[in-house]
Amino acid sequence: MVRWDISLFGFGGQGIIRGGQILGEAAVLEGKDAALTVAYGPEQIGGWSRADVVISDEPIDFPLITKPDVLIVMSQEGLDRSFNEGRAPKKLLIYDSGLVDVSKVKGINMVGLPATKVAEQLGRRLVANIMMLGAFSEITKIVKHESLLNVIKKTFPKAVELNERIFMEGVRYAKESGVIV
């Protein structure tokens, strides 16, 4: 059985949980099993926010994550909390290089991309999470680009082009990083 434990961590308003929903739905539509559990601080906007996604080729037994294989992090607090709580990723760290300082992280495959900055340049900071998903998809190949793009299109029918464009930006950054897991 191939099981992937993926944790997305950031703050409220970045679309962390939405990112988890998109990832899980794409996996389910590919015929895999997926489970998403979420955790967040008391504030709606600005508080910490975490989405844990389990994706597996077989039915998932335990739907919770104790230590992720992949951590996608979009805030410094997200990185610090993950590492302090024994939830450092086993295989891969993907981070927003404009928001997260990873200078203390050692011995883990890492890919940084300026997702929020690129999203701002494209005119909509909200789509940064989609760039993270593009990079994640390119490196891990757990779900296909096409599946994710289909779900993204369905979820945001009014911003199809923008989302596709930033998704492919994420793919490009991931390719250029040369990181493989």
Binding site: G20, Q21, G24, V28, D33, A34, A35, L36, T37, V38, I60, P63, L64
Partner: peptide, 9 residues
């Protein structure tokens, strides 16, 4: 709480 809040297939 977990089964109710969890997203699944």
């Amino acid at each position: 709480q977990v089964i109710s809040h969890m997203y699944g297939s």
